[in-house]
Amino acid sequence: MFTTLRFPAILALVLLPVTIIAQPGRSGAGLPSSVTVTAGGASADDLNDDFGGRFGDTQVTHVAASLSHRFSLTDRSSLTLEGGYERFDLDSDPAVVPLPDQLQTVSVQGMLRHPLGPRWSLLANLKTSVANSGTGIESDGLGVNVVLLGLYRQTDTFSWAAGLMYRSLAEDDYRWLPAVGFDWRPNQTWAVSVGFPRTGVTYTLNDRVRTSLEATFQGGTFYVKEPVGVRLAGPRFPLRDTLLDYSEVRVGGTVEYQPHPAVTLTASTGVVVGQKFDYFDRNYELSSDGATPFVRLAVRYSF
Results as ranks from 00 to 15, higher is better:
Thr4Met: 02
Ile10Trp: 13
Leu13Asn: 13
Leu13Val: 08
Leu15Ser: 00
Leu16Gly: 04
Val18Met: 04
Ile21Val: 10
Arg26Ala: 11
Ser27Phe: 05
Ser27Val: 08
Gly28Leu: 06
Gly28Cys: 07
Ala29Asn: 08
Ser33Thr: 12
Ser33Glu: 11
Gly41Cys: 07
Gly41Lys: 02
Ser43Arg: 08
Asp46Gln: 12
Asn48Glu: 15
Asp49Asn: 14
Gly53Met: 01
Thr58Phe: 06
Val60Asp: 05
Val60Gly: 01
His62Leu: 09
His62Thr: 05
Ser66Ile: 08
Arg70Phe: 01
Thr74Leu: 03
Ser78Lys: 12
Leu79Met: 01
Thr80Phe: 00
Asp91Met: 04
Ser92Asp: 14
Ala95Asn: 14
Pro100Asp: 14
Pro100Ile: 03
Leu103Ile: 10
Val108His: 09
Gly110Lys: 12
Met111Trp: 05
Met111Gly: 03
Leu112Met: 04
Leu112Val: 04
Gly117Pro: 13
Leu122Ile: 00
Leu123Tyr: 10
Thr128Ala: 02
Ser133Gly: 14
Val144Tyr: 00
Val144Trp: 06
Leu149Tyr: 00
Leu151Tyr: 01
Thr157Lys: 06
Ser159Asn: 10
Gly163Phe: 00
Tyr166Ser: 03
Leu177Met: 14
Ala179Pro: 02
Gly181Cys: 04
Asp183Gly: 08
Trp184Asp: 05
Trp184Thr: 04
Ala191Asp: 03
Ser193Gln: 13
Arg198Ile: 08
Gly200Asn: 09
Val201Tyr: 00
Tyr203His: 14
Thr204Ala: 00
Asp207His: 08
Thr211Leu: 12
Thr216Ile: 03
Gln218Pro: 04
Tyr223Phe: 15
Pro227Asp: 11
Pro227Leu: 04
Val228Leu: 12
Arg231Ser: 14
Leu243Met: 15
Val255His: 09
Gln258Cys: 04
Gln258His: 06
Pro259Ala: 12
Pro261Gln: 09
Pro261Glu: 07
Val263Thr: 11
Thr264Arg: 09
Val272Asn: 01
Tyr279Pro: 04
Phe280Arg: 13
Tyr284Gly: 01
Tyr284Ile: 07
Ser288Gly: 15
Asp289Asn: 15
Phe294Ala: 01
Arg296His: 07
Val299Pro: 02
Ser302Pro: 04
Ser302Lys: 00
Phe303Pro: 02
